[in-house]
C-alpha cells in the first residue's frame, strides 16, 4: 500500500543551513496494517508523513502509495490524491475555530462541489457515529479537547480514505481521551483502513492494535 524506497529529504539543499530531515528511509506498509512511527520530536516523523501525503517532495528516493508515484506527481494531482485517499489527524487538531462542527467536517469536500444531499448525509452519519451529532452547529472554539478530536477524525474520514495519517494524535489529550482514541482506531482497523501513527507517546507502544513499529532517530531508520 505504502512503499518508500531510499527516501531522503534535505531542507535548504545546497545552502549553508542545509538540514537533513530524512536519510535514506525505506519500508513498506501493507493494506490494513496499523504501523507505529516512533521517535523523539525532531526525528523526522512529521516530514515523513507529509511526504507520504504528497504535501512535500523528497529530495531523493521514491514513494509509491496505492500504486501512485506520489513523489513524481505534480502538486495539482497530489492534492487530488490526498482528497481521495488520505485522511489526516493532526497534533493540534488544526480545526478552523470560527466554523461550526459541521462546516469543519465538510471542508475537504468543498472543492468537489458535490450535491448538498450527499454531502449532508455523509457528514451526518459520521457525526452520529462519533457522538457529536448534537453539537452540529456549535463553533469549534466552544468545544472541549475530546470533542475537537472527534471532529478531526470525522473530517479525516469524510472522503472515505484508505489511509489515515496521525501526527501525535494524543499529545493534547488526557489519559481517558487517549484511551478513547485508541478504541476508535481499533474500529477503523477492523474496517480495513491502513493507519500510520507518528508518536512518542508510550501509551501506544505495547498495544495489540499496533502491527508493527518503525523507529526514526535524527532522520535515520533504526
Amino acid at each position: 500500500m505504502i512503499h518508500l524506497n531510499t527516501v531522503s529529504k534535505i531542507f535548504n539543499a545546497g545552502a549553508k543551513n542545509a538540514f537533513c530531515a530524512l536519510d535514506a528511509v525505506s519500508f513498506e506498509i501493507k493494506q490494513g496494517e496499523v504501523v507505529l512511527l516512533k521517535g523523539a520530536s525532531g526525528s523526522g516523523k512529521s516530514t515523513l508523513l507529509s511526504l507520504i501525503a504528497g504535501l512535500g517532495k523528497p529530495t531523493h528516493g521514491e514513494i509509491v502509495v496505492g500504486g501512485k508515484h506520489i513523489s513524481k506527481l505534480p502538486d495539482h494531482f497530489a492534492a487530488l490524491f490526498r482528497r481521495s485517499s488520505i485522511g489526516f489527524i493532526f497534533q493540534k487538531f488544526n480545526l478552523i475555530p470560527t466554523l461550526s462542527v459541521f462546516e469543519n467536517i465538510i471542508v475537504p469536500l468543498i472543492p468537489s462541489n458535490i450535491p448538498e444531499k450527499e454531502l449532508c448525509s455523509r457528514a451526518n452519519s459520521l457525526m452520529h457515529r462519533f457522538g457529536i451529532a448534537e453539537k452540529r452547529e456549535t463553533l469549534i472554539k466552544h468545544l472541549s479537547g475530546g470533542e475537537q478530536q472527534r471532529v478531526v477524525i470525522c473530517r479525516a474520514l469524510i472522503n472515505n480514505p484508505r489511509i489515515l495519517l496521525c501526527d501525535e494524535p494524543t499529545a493534547n489529550l488526557d489519559a481517558t481521551l487517549s484511551y478513547e482514541f485508541v478504541q476508535m482506531m481499533q474500529t477503523l482497523k477492523t474496517e480495513g483502513k491502513t493507519i500510520v501513527i507518528a508518536t512518542h507517546d508510550s501509551l501506544f507502544f505495547d498495544l495489540p492494535l499496533i502491527d508493527r513499529s518503525i523507529e526514526l532517530s535524527k532522520g535515520k531508520q533504526i
Binding site: 539543499a13 517532495k57 523528497p58 529530495t59 531523493h60 513523489s71 513524481k72 505534480p74 502538486d75 495539482h76
Partner: peptide
C-alpha cells in the same frame, strides 16, 4: 525532481 521544477509548477 529539481527544486526549480517545483517552482516552475507554481
Amino acid at each position: 525532481f529539481h527544486e526549480r521544477q517545483y517552482a516552475l509548477e507554481k
